[in-house]
Amino acid sequence: MLKKLKIGDIETKYPIVQGGMAVGISLDGLSSAVANAGGIGVIGTAGIGFFSNIKNYKKANIESLKNYIRKAKEKTKGIIGVNIMVALTDYAEMVKTAIDEGIDIIFSGAGLPLSLPSFLKKDSKTKLVPIVSSLKAAQIIVKRWMSKFNYLPDAFVLEGPLAGGHLGYKKDELFSENNKLENNIPILKEYLLNVEKNYGKKIPLIAGGGLYSKEDVEKVLALGADAVQMGTRFIATEECDADIKFKEAIINAKDENITIIKSPVGLPGRALKNSFIESVEKGEKKPYECRYHCIKTCNFRTAPYCIAKALYNAAIGNIEEGFVFTGGAVSKINKIQKVEDIIKELFES
């Protein structure tokens, strides 16, 4: 019998979370479709202000976040989360806004979300879910949250090295046997069961990174995960918020097109190689200005390009002035589907 995902008093029909893909890939369209199909839909918040007419970038971010949360909620009675990167310069404001808007879940990675519970109010029902890549990171978060806030995470997302976008590993760690998702699921699960034993709170484990098929899902759940996270698989859908050219880049991608880039934010990232990335590798791209300072770890004085602008360009279909982040299983995707059909294929076929 298929298990449901329970995060506190939240329960889904299927144990699946859609990865929050930022700068215009998962907004209200994709997130609400996943929620309506029985999973957890997630709005990616980094760069969300690009999709606003407001000139002030930080104000645009806040208003856009409110707007997309409200639009998603109008389209579904299902569960909607947001992905808010710790590395954002306006992290605190974005978290406060999401909680004020009554978002169901905040997923937070790209750094350790050590202060996240401090933003909850007494009547807040928002669940807090850190994204980690190792047992050590989970242990640090649990220790800090308990000592400072007497609060345990409501769940954890474990992201393996085959995930798309920014990765929580050094480049030389990506292909290490020790870091494989399937090796770390049982380790983190055992730790979370011990935490449950000690504190009486069940902390579900959601695992993802390079997953594609029903077999992948079954393998991850059999290893002890309570649910899976998938991002790239949902890009090639009718409901995804990205431009059709972005979706076509995913559909047409082969294994040999995947590359690991050195992102201006200081993390490695998995992306599809194209002329933009090639020109950056040759040292040809330079930003003329930094209008946004959106990421704490990005030094705009030395950055070879503005990653926020590059990802925005790709999302609106101007692929040659940007690039496409992708997970490791992208070559298996060869058509555009409906979100509901993908979820049924994964859990009911």
Rank of each mutant, 00 (worst) to 15 (best):
G8P: 02
K143L: 15
P161L: 01
K136H: 13
A242Q: 10
I185R: 11
K121I: 01
A329W: 10
E256R: 11
G208P: 07
S176K: 15
S31T: 02
E215L: 12
Q139Y: 04
K273F: 12
E74Y: 05
G231C: 06
V265G: 02
T45H: 06
G20N: 08
S26Q: 00
K75F: 02
S31G: 08
N257Y: 02
G317M: 11
F175P: 00
A303Q: 03
G209N: 08
K125C: 02
T302S: 15
C306V: 02
K143Y: 06
E321D: 15
F276G: 03
F175Y: 13
F323E: 01
K59C: 04
E177M: 05
G44P: 07
K335Y: 09
G327C: 02
L30D: 06
A225E: 05
A310E: 02
P264Y: 00
K245F: 14
K148N: 15
G49V: 12
V132H: 11
K96C: 07
M85Q: 07
G160S: 05
I342D: 01
L188V: 10
D243W: 15
S349Q: 06
I80N: 09
H293G: 09
G102L: 04
Y91W: 09
D216H: 08
D100R: 06
V265E: 02
I62G: 09
G266W: 12
E101A: 14
E159Y: 05
V195I: 15
M146F: 09
L188A: 11
N83I: 00
E256Q: 11
K332Y: 13
V23I: 11
I307F: 04
R270N: 07
L5V: 13
E11A: 11
S52R: 10
I99W: 03
F51Y: 13
V86I: 10
K143C: 05
I105L: 14
Y292S: 06
I258C: 03
V228R: 00
I277V: 15
T259G: 01
F323C: 04
G109R: 12
I277Y: 00
A137N: 06
G210N: 03
G49T: 04
N53M: 13
K58P: 09
Y169T: 04
F323S: 00
L158G: 07
I250R: 13
T259H: 05
F175A: 10
